[in-house]
Amino acid sequence: MDISEPVRLGQYRLPDGRDLAWAEWGPEDGTPVLLCPGAATSRRLGFGTGAVDALGIRLISVDRPGVGASDPAPGRTLDSFAADIAGLRRDILGTAELAAVGYSAGGPFALACAAAGVAARAAVVAGADEFASSHDGLPEDLRAMVELAAADPAAAERSFAEFGSAEALWQLITSCSPPVDLAVYRSPEFEPVFRQALAEGFAQGPAGYARDTLLAMSRWPFAVADVRTPVDLWYGGLDTSPSHSPDHGTTLAGRLPSARHHLVPDAGGALLWTHAEPILRTLLGADH
């Protein structure tokens, strides 16, 4: 499990005057890989940071609008996030192809980049499915969130904001995690970094987290079946968080024509950190 402080930090000024905050690891001339972090987790928490130099990967983690140090964008969508990343790619990366990896609640954002053609390859790791497309198998509390998001999006967003705080999210994550994940989350080298990333994620308040959650719980603005970009789906067989995927990505894999489904039997939801190198290798187009 490799985590370390970012090598570089910066801000990208978008055409509308907003700033998008980013962090980087690895060589500046490496293959660019965009990290879409989990819910309300700031850009400072990377993954596989001990492997990126050897793999020649430039890992770029971006705070979504209203989260961490990125300026808010009221009414933003999954599509508008992909447009933001398209600008960053054009102005900072030039002609280099971009791969995207979305962890947990970041999964829909990585898929949005793939659907828009911004990312040439994508990975979803313990990612949320499009729960609004099917209620089958959803636990009651998750089903209620999806139904509220469909019936009254504004009320749902307010509800998510009322819940949202760094401590509440930490308690939710650890209460839903199996022992294999708790061993990661509560380890002395990981817990303080993770909790700091959550605190930074809520630095502007809960609005960014609430918007992210609404977008994940609502119908996505693109058809998953139309995504032709190669997508690797990674799930841990021991993961017990239904908000990742009640069926460990099987339904999502069936809807994505270009998907490769990796189910790691002895891993949990923290496989972004426990299996970082094989995930990164697939983003380079290499088999694990």
Rank of each mutant, 00 (worst) to 15 (best):
I57S: 13
L59A: 07
G75L: 00
T41V: 15
D79I: 15
S42Y: 04
G48A: 13
R44Y: 00
A54H: 12
T49A: 13
P65N: 06
G48L: 14
S61D: 06
F47Q: 12
I85F: 03
R44Q: 13
V62L: 15
P65V: 00
L78V: 13
G38V: 02
P72T: 11
T49C: 15
G48K: 15
C36E: 13
G38E: 01
R43Q: 06
R64S: 08
T77E: 05
R64L: 14
P72R: 06
L55T: 02
S61N: 03
T49S: 14
D63K: 02
V62M: 14
V62K: 14
P74D: 05
D53P: 12
R90P: 05
S80W: 12
S80V: 05
S61A: 15
A51L: 05
R64C: 05
L55S: 09
R89S: 08
S42P: 04
R90I: 02
P74V: 02
D84E: 05
R90S: 13
G50W: 01
T77D: 05
S42D: 06
P37G: 12
S70H: 10
G38Y: 07
L59Y: 13
S42N: 01
G87V: 03
P37Q: 09
R58K: 04
L88S: 06
V62D: 10
A83Y: 04
R58M: 01
T41R: 04
R90Q: 07
L45Q: 09
A39D: 00
S80H: 10
G56R: 09
F47C: 10
D79S: 15
D53T: 15
D53K: 11
L55N: 02
G66Q: 07
F81G: 05
R90M: 07
G56E: 11
F47H: 14
R64M: 12
L35H: 09
F47N: 06
T77L: 00
P37A: 14
V33I: 15
T49N: 14
A69P: 00
D53G: 15
L55V: 08
G68K: 04
T49M: 13
T41M: 15
L45V: 08
A39H: 14
C36L: 11
R64G: 04
A69I: 02
P65R: 07
D71C: 00
R44D: 11
A39F: 09
P72H: 11
A82Q: 12
I60P: 10
S61L: 06
A39R: 11
D71F: 00
G38F: 01
G75H: 02
V67F: 01
G50V: 04
